[in-house]
């Protein structure tokens, strides 16, 4: 199978962004967290499956699109998204703990 780096970059970026948003929103909404838990029995398992499904779906959705000739800027975008998302999750849980 020929790899499409554009769809791979889109899939990774969207997976990280959506997993981060789902994590934070589910902590703020008991209703959503309970709903996630009701799907697989544990909210974290559902989040993992959700991330996997998003990654595969986004990759195949863009797989036939025209690929990048070069993608260094897009790789740095994924790096920036990962750093911001990681910090957002960490700082959210620090805030969540301190605000209890």
């Amino acid at each position: 199978m020929k790899i499409n780096t554009k769809s791979l970059i889109y899939a990774t970026s969207l997976t990280i962004i959506l997993a981060t948003l789902l994590t934070i929103i589910a902590e703020l909404s008991k209703l959503l967290k309970d709903f996630l838990a009701s799907i697989t029995g544990h909210h974290w398992v559902t989040k993992g499956l959700f991330a996997l499904i998003i990654f595969i779906a986004v990759y195949f959705f863009f797989a036939s699109s025209k690929d990048y000739k070069e993608c260094k800027k897009e790789i740095y975008s994924v790096i920036a998204i990962t750093i911001v998302s990681s910090l957002a999750i960490f700082l959210f849980f620090v805030w969540h703990f301190l605000s209890k």
Binding site: S85, S86, F90, F93, V94
Partner: peptide, 21 residues
């Protein structure tokens, strides 16, 4: 637990996808 387990279990999810990329 409240900060580090919660952070670890969620940021870990990024690693398999970053490694595939």
């Amino acid at each position: 637990h409240e900060i580090f387990t919660e952070t670890k279990e969620h940021i870990f999810l990024f690693l398999p996808f970053l490694s595939i990329l």
